[in-house]
Design a protein around this nucleic acid. Structure first.
Length: 480
DNA sequence: AACTCTGTTGTT
DNA sequence: AACAACAGAGT
Protein backbone atom coordinates (compact mmCIF):
# COMPACT_ATOMS: atom_id res chain seq x y z
CA UNK A 1 0.00 0.00 0.00
CA UNK A 2 1.29 3.39 -0.85
CA UNK A 3 1.89 5.87 1.83
CA UNK A 4 -0.63 8.23 0.32
CA UNK A 5 -3.28 5.57 0.37
CA UNK A 6 -2.48 4.86 3.93
CA UNK A 7 -2.81 8.48 4.75
CA UNK A 8 -6.11 8.73 2.96
CA UNK A 9 -7.40 5.71 4.74
CA UNK A 10 -6.35 7.06 8.05
CA UNK A 11 -7.97 10.34 7.37
CA UNK A 12 -11.16 8.75 6.29
CA UNK A 13 -11.22 6.47 9.25
CA UNK A 14 -10.47 9.29 11.54
CA UNK A 15 -13.21 11.37 10.03
CA UNK A 16 -15.74 8.68 10.73
CA UNK A 17 -16.30 7.70 7.16
CA UNK A 18 -17.33 4.19 6.47
CA UNK A 19 -14.43 2.07 5.65
CA UNK A 20 -16.18 -0.20 3.29
CA UNK A 21 -15.69 2.05 0.35
CA UNK A 22 -12.03 2.35 0.88
CA UNK A 23 -10.02 0.80 -1.79
CA UNK A 24 -8.19 -1.13 0.81
CA UNK A 25 -9.35 -3.85 3.05
CA UNK A 26 -10.57 -1.97 6.07
CA UNK A 27 -9.49 -4.65 8.43
CA UNK A 28 -6.14 -4.90 6.87
CA UNK A 29 -5.75 -1.19 6.75
CA UNK A 30 -6.68 -0.72 10.36
CA UNK A 31 -4.44 -3.51 11.28
CA UNK A 32 -1.68 -2.05 9.29
CA UNK A 33 -2.30 1.33 10.73
CA UNK A 34 -1.79 -0.06 14.14
CA UNK A 35 0.99 -2.42 13.43
CA UNK A 36 2.76 -0.83 10.59
CA UNK A 37 2.34 2.83 11.03
CA UNK A 38 4.23 5.24 8.93
CA UNK A 39 7.42 6.34 10.37
CA UNK A 40 6.01 9.64 11.51
CA UNK A 41 3.54 7.80 13.66
CA UNK A 42 5.78 5.29 15.21
CA UNK A 43 5.00 4.83 18.79
CA UNK A 44 7.33 3.84 21.42
CA UNK A 45 6.98 0.44 22.90
CA UNK A 46 5.49 1.93 25.99
CA UNK A 47 2.79 3.91 24.21
CA UNK A 48 -0.65 2.54 23.73
CA UNK A 49 -2.83 2.99 20.72
CA UNK A 50 -6.46 3.17 21.57
CA UNK A 51 -9.70 3.81 19.85
CA UNK A 52 -11.26 6.76 21.48
CA UNK A 53 -14.46 8.62 21.32
CA UNK A 54 -17.24 8.03 18.87
CA UNK A 55 -20.36 9.90 18.05
CA UNK A 56 -22.23 8.32 20.89
CA UNK A 57 -19.49 9.01 23.35
CA UNK A 58 -18.12 12.40 22.76
CA UNK A 59 -19.95 13.54 19.72
CA UNK A 60 -16.98 13.10 17.49
CA UNK A 61 -16.00 10.29 15.23
CA UNK A 62 -14.00 7.59 16.87
CA UNK A 63 -10.35 7.97 16.33
CA UNK A 64 -7.19 6.22 17.11
CA UNK A 65 -5.06 7.89 19.68
CA UNK A 66 -1.64 7.22 20.90
CA UNK A 67 -1.48 7.34 24.63
CA UNK A 68 1.88 8.22 25.92
CA UNK A 69 3.34 7.15 29.12
CA UNK A 70 2.83 10.52 30.61
CA UNK A 71 -0.91 10.08 30.21
CA UNK A 72 -1.27 12.41 27.30
CA UNK A 73 -3.05 11.30 24.18
CA UNK A 74 -2.27 12.29 20.66
CA UNK A 75 -4.53 11.78 17.76
CA UNK A 76 -3.06 9.51 15.20
CA UNK A 77 -4.97 11.34 12.55
CA UNK A 78 -4.01 14.84 13.38
CA UNK A 79 -1.08 14.49 15.61
CA UNK A 80 -2.74 16.94 17.92
CA UNK A 81 -3.12 16.32 21.61
CA UNK A 82 -6.50 15.12 22.80
CA UNK A 83 -7.60 17.66 25.30
CA UNK A 84 -10.38 15.69 26.90
CA UNK A 85 -8.54 12.46 27.26
CA UNK A 86 -8.92 11.69 30.91
CA UNK A 87 -8.33 8.97 33.40
CA UNK A 88 -11.65 7.42 32.67
CA UNK A 89 -10.68 6.76 29.12
CA UNK A 90 -7.69 4.89 30.29
CA UNK A 91 -9.79 2.26 31.85
CA UNK A 92 -10.09 0.38 28.65
CA UNK A 93 -9.16 0.53 25.06
CA UNK A 94 -12.63 1.65 24.17
CA UNK A 95 -14.66 3.96 26.27
CA UNK A 96 -17.90 2.12 26.19
CA UNK A 97 -19.89 3.99 28.62
CA UNK A 98 -20.07 7.19 30.47
CA UNK A 99 -20.26 7.29 34.18
CA UNK A 100 -23.65 7.03 35.76
CA UNK A 101 -23.38 10.51 37.10
CA UNK A 102 -22.57 11.77 33.65
CA UNK A 103 -25.60 10.01 32.23
CA UNK A 104 -27.84 11.31 34.94
CA UNK A 105 -26.63 14.77 34.31
CA UNK A 106 -27.28 14.40 30.64
CA UNK A 107 -30.75 13.04 31.23
CA UNK A 108 -31.54 15.79 33.64
CA UNK A 109 -30.37 18.28 31.13
CA UNK A 110 -32.55 16.68 28.51
CA UNK A 111 -35.52 16.86 30.82
CA UNK A 112 -34.75 20.45 31.64
CA UNK A 113 -34.45 21.13 27.99
CA UNK A 114 -37.78 19.51 27.33
CA UNK A 115 -39.32 21.41 30.16
CA UNK A 116 -37.94 24.61 28.78
CA UNK A 117 -39.19 23.75 25.38
CA UNK A 118 -42.59 23.09 26.83
CA UNK A 119 -42.48 26.14 28.97
CA UNK A 120 -41.12 28.19 26.17
CA UNK A 121 -43.46 26.79 23.61
CA UNK A 122 -44.13 29.38 21.05
CA UNK A 123 -47.44 31.12 21.16
CA UNK A 124 -48.26 29.30 18.01
CA UNK A 125 -47.73 26.01 19.72
CA UNK A 126 -49.80 27.01 22.67
CA UNK A 127 -52.45 28.77 20.76
CA UNK A 128 -55.73 27.03 20.26
CA UNK A 129 -55.98 25.33 16.96
CA UNK A 130 -58.41 27.20 14.85
CA UNK A 131 -60.70 25.68 12.35
CA UNK A 132 -59.92 26.99 8.91
CA UNK A 133 -63.36 26.35 7.56
CA UNK A 134 -64.80 29.61 6.28
CA UNK A 135 -67.25 30.96 8.74
CA UNK A 136 -66.15 28.59 11.46
CA UNK A 137 -64.06 30.15 14.14
CA UNK A 138 -63.95 27.28 16.49
CA UNK A 139 -60.77 26.64 18.37
CA UNK A 140 -59.42 23.57 20.05
CA UNK A 141 -56.70 22.97 22.52
CA UNK A 142 -55.77 19.65 21.07
CA UNK A 143 -54.94 19.19 17.43
CA UNK A 144 -56.79 15.94 17.37
CA UNK A 145 -59.89 17.70 18.55
CA UNK A 146 -59.57 20.07 15.69
CA UNK A 147 -59.14 17.14 13.39
CA UNK A 148 -62.28 15.64 14.74
CA UNK A 149 -64.11 18.89 14.44
CA UNK A 150 -63.00 19.36 10.88
CA UNK A 151 -64.76 16.15 10.05
CA UNK A 152 -67.99 17.88 10.89
CA UNK A 153 -67.30 20.04 7.89
CA UNK A 154 -66.06 17.46 5.49
CA UNK A 155 -68.43 14.77 6.68
CA UNK A 156 -66.60 12.11 4.79
CA UNK A 157 -68.69 9.13 5.80
CA UNK A 158 -71.56 8.84 3.39
CA UNK A 159 -74.75 7.00 3.96
CA UNK A 160 -74.93 4.24 1.38
CA UNK A 161 -78.57 4.81 0.64
CA UNK A 162 -78.64 7.02 -2.36
CA UNK A 163 -81.95 8.62 -1.58
CA UNK A 164 -80.96 9.42 1.96
CA UNK A 165 -79.97 12.98 2.53
CA UNK A 166 -76.92 11.75 4.32
CA UNK A 167 -75.78 10.10 1.18
CA UNK A 168 -74.67 13.51 0.07
CA UNK A 169 -74.33 15.20 3.39
CA UNK A 170 -72.42 12.45 5.07
CA UNK A 171 -71.32 12.03 8.64
CA UNK A 172 -68.28 13.20 10.49
CA UNK A 173 -67.43 9.81 11.82
CA UNK A 174 -67.96 6.26 10.93
CA UNK A 175 -69.63 5.68 14.24
CA UNK A 176 -72.21 8.28 13.55
CA UNK A 177 -72.85 6.89 10.16
CA UNK A 178 -73.24 3.43 11.58
CA UNK A 179 -75.63 4.75 14.13
CA UNK A 180 -77.58 6.51 11.46
CA UNK A 181 -77.82 3.37 9.38
CA UNK A 182 -79.02 1.52 12.40
CA UNK A 183 -81.53 4.24 13.14
CA UNK A 184 -82.87 4.79 9.71
CA UNK A 185 -82.03 1.95 7.45
CA UNK A 186 -82.00 -1.12 9.56
CA UNK A 187 -84.99 -3.37 9.34
CA UNK A 188 -84.32 -4.49 12.85
CA UNK A 189 -82.53 -1.70 14.57
CA UNK A 190 -80.86 -2.32 17.82
CA UNK A 191 -83.08 -1.07 20.56
CA UNK A 192 -82.49 -0.11 24.13
CA UNK A 193 -85.37 -0.52 26.51
CA UNK A 194 -86.04 1.45 29.60
CA UNK A 195 -85.23 -0.69 32.56
CA UNK A 196 -88.05 0.70 34.61
CA UNK A 197 -90.85 -1.67 33.89
CA UNK A 198 -93.43 -1.28 32.77
CA UNK A 199 -92.17 1.86 31.15
CA UNK A 200 -92.49 1.18 27.47
CA UNK A 201 -89.75 3.54 26.46
CA UNK A 202 -87.16 2.23 24.17
CA UNK A 203 -84.70 3.93 21.97
CA UNK A 204 -82.35 3.05 19.23
CA UNK A 205 -79.74 5.00 21.06
CA UNK A 206 -78.28 3.95 24.27
CA UNK A 207 -77.49 7.47 25.28
CA UNK A 208 -81.03 8.53 24.83
CA UNK A 209 -82.25 5.58 26.77
CA UNK A 210 -79.95 6.52 29.58
CA UNK A 211 -81.07 10.07 29.35
CA UNK A 212 -84.63 8.95 29.50
CA UNK A 213 -84.08 6.81 32.57
CA UNK A 214 -82.31 9.62 34.29
CA UNK A 215 -84.93 12.17 33.56
CA UNK A 216 -88.03 10.07 33.72
CA UNK A 217 -87.08 7.80 36.54
CA UNK A 218 -84.48 9.69 38.46
CA UNK A 219 -81.98 7.08 37.72
CA UNK A 220 -78.34 7.48 38.40
CA UNK A 221 -75.77 5.50 36.69
CA UNK A 222 -72.18 4.91 37.37
CA UNK A 223 -70.12 6.22 34.57
CA UNK A 224 -67.70 3.88 33.01
CA UNK A 225 -65.40 6.80 32.59
CA UNK A 226 -64.73 9.77 34.72
CA UNK A 227 -64.60 12.32 32.06
CA UNK A 228 -67.80 13.97 33.02
CA UNK A 229 -67.47 17.51 34.01
CA UNK A 230 -69.41 17.16 37.19
CA UNK A 231 -68.66 14.62 39.83
CA UNK A 232 -69.73 11.48 38.15
CA UNK A 233 -69.89 9.05 40.95
CA UNK A 234 -72.64 10.88 42.73
CA UNK A 235 -75.45 12.23 40.78
CA UNK A 236 -79.07 12.64 41.54
CA UNK A 237 -80.72 11.12 44.54
CA UNK A 238 -78.83 8.74 46.68
CA UNK A 239 -81.55 6.21 46.24
CA UNK A 240 -80.95 6.07 42.58
CA UNK A 241 -79.76 2.81 41.24
CA UNK A 242 -76.41 2.53 39.69
CA UNK A 243 -76.47 2.15 36.03
CA UNK A 244 -75.41 -1.05 34.47
CA UNK A 245 -72.37 -0.59 32.44
CA UNK A 246 -74.31 -0.59 29.28
CA UNK A 247 -71.32 0.40 27.34
CA UNK A 248 -69.84 -2.92 28.17
CA UNK A 249 -72.80 -4.90 27.18
CA UNK A 250 -73.10 -6.69 23.95
CA UNK A 251 -74.39 -4.67 21.13
CA UNK A 252 -78.11 -4.62 21.18
CA UNK A 253 -79.31 -7.37 19.06
CA UNK A 254 -80.92 -6.95 15.76
CA UNK A 255 -81.54 -10.60 15.55
CA UNK A 256 -85.08 -11.02 14.51
CA UNK A 257 -85.61 -13.66 17.04
CA UNK A 258 -84.66 -11.26 19.72
CA UNK A 259 -84.95 -7.77 18.38
CA UNK A 260 -84.88 -6.11 21.74
CA UNK A 261 -81.79 -6.51 23.72
CA UNK A 262 -82.14 -5.11 27.13
CA UNK A 263 -79.80 -5.90 29.92
CA UNK A 264 -81.33 -8.26 32.37
CA UNK A 265 -82.50 -6.78 35.60
CA UNK A 266 -79.60 -8.06 37.55
CA UNK A 267 -77.42 -5.82 35.55
CA UNK A 268 -79.14 -2.95 37.15
CA UNK A 269 -77.14 -3.61 40.23
CA UNK A 270 -73.98 -3.94 38.42
CA UNK A 271 -73.62 -7.66 38.43
CA UNK A 272 -71.26 -9.18 36.02
CA UNK A 273 -72.34 -9.99 32.58
CA UNK A 274 -73.26 -13.50 31.90
CA UNK A 275 -74.33 -13.36 28.34
CA UNK A 276 -73.17 -16.32 26.41
CA UNK A 277 -69.98 -15.06 25.00
CA UNK A 278 -68.97 -17.96 22.86
CA UNK A 279 -70.85 -19.53 20.11
CA UNK A 280 -70.36 -23.17 19.94
CA UNK A 281 -68.46 -24.44 17.03
CA UNK A 282 -71.60 -26.04 15.72
CA UNK A 283 -73.57 -22.92 16.27
CA UNK A 284 -71.04 -20.91 14.45
CA UNK A 285 -71.12 -23.15 11.47
CA UNK A 286 -74.85 -23.10 11.47
CA UNK A 287 -74.88 -19.38 11.75
CA UNK A 288 -72.37 -18.90 9.09
CA UNK A 289 -73.54 -21.34 6.54
CA UNK A 290 -76.86 -22.69 7.44
CA UNK A 291 -78.97 -20.02 8.93
CA UNK A 292 -79.03 -16.88 6.93
CA UNK A 293 -77.82 -13.93 8.86
CA UNK A 294 -74.96 -11.62 9.32
CA UNK A 295 -73.34 -11.15 12.58
CA UNK A 296 -74.62 -7.89 13.86
CA UNK A 297 -71.35 -6.78 15.11
CA UNK A 298 -69.58 -7.25 11.90
CA UNK A 299 -68.84 -3.66 11.31
CA UNK A 300 -68.43 -3.46 7.65
CA UNK A 301 -67.50 0.01 7.06
CA UNK A 302 -68.37 2.64 4.68
CA UNK A 303 -65.49 4.69 3.82
CA UNK A 304 -64.74 8.31 4.06
CA UNK A 305 -65.40 9.83 0.83
CA UNK A 306 -62.59 11.05 -1.25
CA UNK A 307 -64.59 10.27 -4.25
CA UNK A 308 -65.90 12.23 -7.10
CA UNK A 309 -69.57 12.97 -7.20
CA UNK A 310 -69.85 10.45 -9.99
CA UNK A 311 -68.35 7.84 -7.82
CA UNK A 312 -70.78 8.76 -5.17
CA UNK A 313 -73.78 8.54 -7.38
CA UNK A 314 -74.67 5.24 -5.85
CA UNK A 315 -73.39 3.43 -2.87
CA UNK A 316 -73.08 0.39 -4.98
CA UNK A 317 -71.39 2.22 -7.74
CA UNK A 318 -68.38 3.32 -5.93
CA UNK A 319 -66.56 0.55 -7.46
CA UNK A 320 -63.89 1.29 -9.87
CA UNK A 321 -60.53 -0.16 -9.20
CA UNK A 322 -60.69 1.27 -5.75
CA UNK A 323 -62.63 -1.76 -4.84
CA UNK A 324 -59.40 -3.58 -4.78
CA UNK A 325 -58.50 -2.00 -1.60
CA UNK A 326 -62.01 -1.86 -0.43
CA UNK A 327 -62.61 -5.46 -0.99
CA UNK A 328 -59.60 -6.37 0.87
CA UNK A 329 -60.68 -4.08 3.55
CA UNK A 330 -64.09 -5.58 3.60
CA UNK A 331 -62.50 -8.82 4.27
CA UNK A 332 -60.47 -7.27 6.95
CA UNK A 333 -63.59 -6.04 8.51
CA UNK A 334 -64.95 -9.49 8.52
CA UNK A 335 -61.89 -10.98 9.89
CA UNK A 336 -62.11 -9.95 13.50
CA UNK A 337 -65.31 -11.82 13.65
CA UNK A 338 -64.14 -14.79 11.76
CA UNK A 339 -60.87 -14.93 13.50
CA UNK A 340 -62.54 -14.36 16.77
CA UNK A 341 -64.89 -17.18 16.20
CA UNK A 342 -62.28 -19.44 14.88
CA UNK A 343 -60.23 -18.71 17.84
CA UNK A 344 -62.76 -20.83 19.51
CA UNK A 345 -62.20 -23.51 17.00
CA UNK A 346 -58.54 -23.21 17.50
CA UNK A 347 -58.98 -23.49 21.15
CA UNK A 348 -57.71 -20.04 21.88
CA UNK A 349 -59.27 -18.38 24.85
CA UNK A 350 -60.50 -15.19 23.40
CA UNK A 351 -63.85 -13.93 24.41
CA UNK A 352 -66.13 -12.56 21.87
CA UNK A 353 -68.06 -9.53 22.82
CA UNK A 354 -71.27 -10.60 21.26
CA UNK A 355 -72.98 -13.79 20.44
CA UNK A 356 -73.24 -14.27 16.74
CA UNK A 357 -76.38 -13.76 14.89
CA UNK A 358 -77.44 -15.15 11.67
CA UNK A 359 -75.51 -14.46 8.62
CA UNK A 360 -77.90 -13.58 5.90
CA UNK A 361 -80.88 -12.14 7.63
CA UNK A 362 -82.98 -9.40 6.24
CA UNK A 363 -80.76 -6.88 7.74
CA UNK A 364 -78.08 -8.13 5.57
CA UNK A 365 -79.07 -5.75 2.87
CA UNK A 366 -78.19 -2.82 5.01
CA UNK A 367 -75.09 -4.48 6.17
CA UNK A 368 -74.25 -5.36 2.71
CA UNK A 369 -74.57 -1.80 1.73
CA UNK A 370 -71.97 -1.14 4.27
CA UNK A 371 -69.88 -3.80 2.76
CA UNK A 372 -70.41 -2.21 -0.57
CA UNK A 373 -69.22 1.05 0.74
CA UNK A 374 -66.33 -0.63 2.15
CA UNK A 375 -65.68 -2.34 -1.05
CA UNK A 376 -65.53 0.96 -2.70
CA UNK A 377 -63.13 2.30 -0.26
CA UNK A 378 -62.17 5.88 -0.61
CA UNK A 379 -59.63 6.99 -3.00
CA UNK A 380 -56.80 9.22 -2.27
CA UNK A 381 -55.60 10.36 -5.57
CA UNK A 382 -56.90 7.17 -7.09
CA UNK A 383 -54.64 5.18 -4.93
CA UNK A 384 -56.08 2.24 -3.16
CA UNK A 385 -57.06 3.31 0.24
CA UNK A 386 -58.15 1.50 3.28
CA UNK A 387 -60.72 2.77 5.58
CA UNK A 388 -59.37 4.15 8.77
CA UNK A 389 -60.23 1.47 11.16
CA UNK A 390 -59.63 -1.30 8.76
CA UNK A 391 -55.99 -0.72 8.72
CA UNK A 392 -55.42 -1.77 12.19
CA UNK A 393 -57.17 -5.05 12.03
CA UNK A 394 -55.44 -7.11 9.48
CA UNK A 395 -56.04 -10.65 10.30
CA UNK A 396 -53.49 -13.28 10.48
CA UNK A 397 -54.28 -16.62 9.08
CA UNK A 398 -51.59 -19.07 9.37
CA UNK A 399 -51.19 -22.34 7.61
CA UNK A 400 -51.20 -23.96 10.94
CA UNK A 401 -54.44 -22.47 11.96
CA UNK A 402 -55.93 -23.34 8.66
CA UNK A 403 -54.84 -26.89 9.07
CA UNK A 404 -56.58 -26.93 12.37
CA UNK A 405 -59.87 -26.17 10.83
CA UNK A 406 -62.46 -28.75 11.12
CA UNK A 407 -62.73 -30.84 8.03
CA UNK A 408 -66.40 -30.29 7.79
CA UNK A 409 -65.79 -26.64 7.86
CA UNK A 410 -63.37 -26.86 5.03
CA UNK A 411 -65.84 -28.90 3.12
CA UNK A 412 -68.27 -26.11 3.37
CA UNK A 413 -65.99 -24.05 1.29
CA UNK A 414 -64.92 -26.63 -1.13
CA UNK A 415 -66.33 -25.91 -4.49
CA UNK A 416 -66.03 -28.58 -7.09
CA UNK A 417 -63.62 -30.27 -4.86
CA UNK A 418 -61.47 -27.24 -4.83
CA UNK A 419 -60.44 -25.15 -1.98
CA UNK A 420 -58.63 -22.01 -2.45
CA UNK A 421 -60.48 -20.29 -5.18
CA UNK A 422 -60.95 -16.63 -5.05
CA UNK A 423 -63.09 -15.35 -2.34
CA UNK A 424 -65.82 -13.16 -3.71
CA UNK A 425 -67.18 -11.47 -0.70
CA UNK A 426 -69.83 -9.97 -2.82
CA UNK A 427 -72.07 -11.11 -5.55
CA UNK A 428 -71.23 -10.46 -9.11
CA UNK A 429 -74.61 -10.99 -10.61
CA UNK A 430 -76.97 -8.08 -10.84
CA UNK A 431 -74.51 -5.69 -9.42
CA UNK A 432 -72.38 -3.15 -10.94
CA UNK A 433 -68.86 -4.00 -11.53
CA UNK A 434 -67.75 -2.46 -8.34
CA UNK A 435 -68.89 -5.61 -6.72
CA UNK A 436 -67.01 -7.84 -8.95
CA UNK A 437 -64.08 -9.62 -7.66
CA UNK A 438 -60.92 -8.13 -8.77
CA UNK A 439 -58.34 -10.84 -9.12
CA UNK A 440 -55.68 -8.39 -8.19
CA UNK A 441 -57.07 -7.82 -4.79
CA UNK A 442 -54.74 -10.06 -3.03
CA UNK A 443 -52.24 -10.57 -5.72
CA UNK A 444 -51.18 -6.99 -5.70
CA UNK A 445 -51.65 -6.33 -2.12
CA UNK A 446 -49.51 -3.49 -0.97
CA UNK A 447 -46.54 -4.83 0.86
CA UNK A 448 -47.46 -3.03 3.96
CA UNK A 449 -50.69 -4.90 4.04
CA UNK A 450 -49.46 -8.13 2.72
CA UNK A 451 -46.99 -8.12 5.48
CA UNK A 452 -49.74 -8.85 7.92
CA UNK A 453 -50.84 -11.94 6.09
CA UNK A 454 -49.52 -15.33 5.80
CA UNK A 455 -50.64 -17.90 3.38
CA UNK A 456 -53.04 -19.34 2.75
CA UNK A 457 -54.74 -16.10 2.14
CA UNK A 458 -58.29 -15.23 2.76
CA UNK A 459 -59.45 -16.44 -0.56
CA UNK A 460 -58.17 -19.80 0.36
CA UNK A 461 -60.27 -19.68 3.36
CA UNK A 462 -63.72 -19.59 1.94
CA UNK A 463 -65.43 -19.70 -1.31
CA UNK A 464 -68.80 -18.20 -1.53
CA UNK A 465 -69.25 -18.76 -5.19
CA UNK A 466 -72.07 -21.11 -4.53
CA UNK A 467 -74.00 -18.53 -2.62
CA UNK A 468 -76.64 -16.66 -4.45
CA UNK A 469 -76.16 -13.17 -3.24
CA UNK A 470 -78.28 -11.47 -5.77
CA UNK A 471 -81.51 -12.08 -3.99
CA UNK A 472 -80.63 -9.87 -1.15
CA UNK A 473 -79.77 -7.11 -3.48
CA UNK A 474 -82.85 -7.47 -5.51
CA UNK A 475 -84.74 -6.45 -2.43
CA UNK A 476 -82.30 -3.87 -1.29
CA UNK A 477 -84.38 -1.60 0.85
CA UNK A 478 -84.69 2.04 0.23
CA UNK A 479 -86.00 3.19 3.50
CA UNK A 480 -84.84 6.39 5.01
C1' DA B 1 -53.91 10.86 17.41
C1' DA B 2 -57.68 7.61 17.28
C1' DC B 3 -61.14 5.84 19.90
C1' DT B 4 -64.51 6.14 23.31
C1' DC B 5 -67.69 7.91 26.56
C1' DT B 6 -70.10 11.66 28.22
C1' DG B 7 -72.39 16.26 28.75
C1' DT B 8 -74.34 20.05 26.62
C1' DT B 9 -77.02 22.23 23.47
C1' DG B 10 -79.59 22.75 19.23
C1' DT B 11 -83.49 20.90 16.58
C1' DT B 12 -87.71 18.50 15.71
C1' DA C 1 -89.78 15.41 25.41
C1' DA C 2 -87.17 13.18 22.35
C1' DC C 3 -83.83 13.22 19.12
C1' DA C 4 -79.62 14.69 17.15
C1' DA C 5 -75.09 16.85 16.80
C1' DC C 6 -70.81 17.70 18.45
C1' DA C 7 -67.31 19.21 21.75
C1' DG C 8 -64.58 17.91 26.02
C1' DA C 9 -61.84 14.82 28.01
C1' DG C 10 -59.96 10.15 29.40
C1' DT C 11 -57.83 5.97 27.59
Amino acid sequence: MHAQQMQDARERLASGEAADDLDVDPYVSLHQLCLQPPTDMITTSTDEVKLMGGLSQNGRPAELVRVKKNGKAISLATGQPIEDYDEESKDGPIRVKRSMSQQLEDEEEIMRSMARRKKNATPEELAPKKCKEPGCNKEFKRPCDLTKHEKTHSRPWKCPFTTCKYHEYGWPTEKEMDRHVNDKHSSAPAMYECHFKPCPYKSKRESNCKQHMEKAHGWTYVRTKTNGKKGDSVKGSSSAQPTPAMGNLPTPSSDHTNPIMTPPEDMMIGSHLDFPMYPSHEQFQADLFGVPSLHDDIQLEFSPEDLTPEELSSPLERGTPSTDAGQFNAFQELTPEFTGQFEDIYGAHVQLPTPPNNFFNKEFSANFATMGQDLCAPLNGNQPHFSPSGQGSAMLYTPTSMADLDEGFIDEFAVNGQIGEDFPLFPTGGLDKSMELDPTVFGTMPPSLAAGFTQPSSQDFMDYTTVDWSGDFATFPEQH
